[in-house]
Each structure stands twice: as C-alpha cells, then as structure tokens.
Amino acid sequence: MINRYEETLYDAYTQVFSVEDVYYESKSEHQHIIIFHNSKFGRVMALDGIIQTTERDEFIYHEMLTHVPIIGHGAVDRVLIIGGGDGGMLREACRHSSISRITMVEIDRAVVDLCREYLPTHSRGAFDDPRLNLVISDGAEFVATTDERFDVIIVDSTDPIGPGEALFTEKFYSDCKRCLYEGGVIVTQNGVAFFQIEEAKNTADAFRNLFRDWHFYTAAVPTYVGGVMAFGWGTDNTELRHQPLATLEQRYQSAGLTTRYYNPSIHQGSFALPQYLANAIGKPG
C-alpha cells in the first residue's frame, strides 16, 4: 500500500498527502480513481492524479456552487447538476425545500457507487431523496438532447484534461443555455485562477457571447492549491447578480440554512475579483 499520495497537476509544484489507509483504488472505464484517508483532511478522493474532494474542505466548494445561484435566483424549482458524482452538490441542493426536482447527470457510475460507500458524508443520504433523477450519461450529450428545463445548472466538472473536457466548450455552454428557463442561471467550476487562468478565460469567451450578464465569483478551497478557485456565472437576468444584501439575507433565513462557509455577505463579496482574474476575463474589476 502507498503511504503518500502526490498530486500530478504541475511539474514544478505539488501537494503531497500522507496516506493512512487506502479505501479504494482502480481504473474505471473513464478515469483512475483513488479514495484514501489523510489525517488532516479525512477521506480524500483523487481522479486521474488530481484531488477532487476531501471530507474536511468540501463544504466550501459545494456550498458556493449551490447556494450562490439558488439564493441569488430566489425562486428555484428545478436544478440540473452536471457531474457531481460524489453527492456533495446534491446534498446542498436538497437542503432547499423549495426545489421540487433535481436532475444529476454523472458520466461515471463508479464514482457514484464508490462515493456512496466510501464518502458517505458527502451525500448524507441525498441519493435517496425522492426529488432526485440520477442519470448516468455524458453531461454534454444530455444538455444537447434533453427536453427538460431548469432554473439553475451547476457544472461540477473535473479537470479539462479527461472526461470533463467537453464541459468546457462553447457548444456545451450554449446547450446549457438552451436548457435554462428564462432568467435561469448557470454556474461552473473553472479551476484555480492563479495557475489555471486559461480555464476562466475560455469560459469567459463563451459566456460573453451567450449571456446578457456573466461574471465570476471565487472561494478559496485549501486542497485546490494555488489561491482562489473561480466559478463562472451566466444568466440573461441582469438583476440576479445585484441582489441587495437584505434580500439575500431574507432568502437565506427563509431557506433555514445553516452553513459553514456561505453567508449572504460572502455571497456578495465573492463577486469582487482579484485584479489578475478581472484582467484575464476582460473586466474592469
């Protein structure tokens, strides 16, 4: 058994985890999967050599990709999650009782099965929620063909090198837009802006052509090393991004959420971008 796990994302800089136990390691049809235990982060899942999620810091990522669009929108009935096989996004979405249907499209059934078994605190039973429609399929293909419409689409993708590649194309974003109700919002995972600025740039180039209002917001997730992670935001409702703090607070209260990272002030503040990111996406900042 290995006693340390080294991320393979960058040649000249890396994070290394001590490994107390390996729960699972294999190559699925789509990717290499490992789930191990680290004393600092709890259970850790890596796909194709890149850390995807850890028990200790997953809440930051999952709260920010669900509550920001859902509370920002204010009247969400239907949610589409692309990817998200670990169930963390689903868990957070399920906490909104106003939502009546959540469709989750994950390409790799192995990820869902393994995470239910080895990362149960990510989903906390959310896979049994009657509002869930779990589809094991290619997310890009799903949005190109489905008749369903959604208020919020959350793109919880992996690295753009691998099965998540199609989830960073303009074609995919434009198919997503087709699946949004009028005034709906799409949010995307765009990597750590400091090291992976091209991911934000590419998505910005696509959103610029597709949405009347688009922007990015950020959160720092410790195991996505290199500073803040960028999340894309695209919608034709120009007001969604500029909700008064009081409105966000009132929605947060009435949703009855207890959160560990998200709160209405963070929500507002997270749209303020570091200047290097603003410059890269061609915004004044």
Partner: peptide, 27 residues
C-alpha cells in the same frame, strides 16, 4: 498529463508551441 507525467521533451519550435496551453503544468 492525464496519467500524471509532466516532463516532456522538445527539439523544435513547432513542438514547443504545442505546450503553450499546458505551460502552467509541464516542465
């Protein structure tokens, strides 16, 4: 890169340019 190998060899400019989009990752 998916496998996790980040060291590559180049010997001409055409090949070098193939790495522009991966320059943050590779040595």
């Amino acid at each position: 890169l998916r496998y996790g190998c980040t060291t590559f060899v180049v010997d001409n400019e055409t090949e070098l340019r193939k790495f522009i989009r991966y320059r943050e990752r590779v040595g």
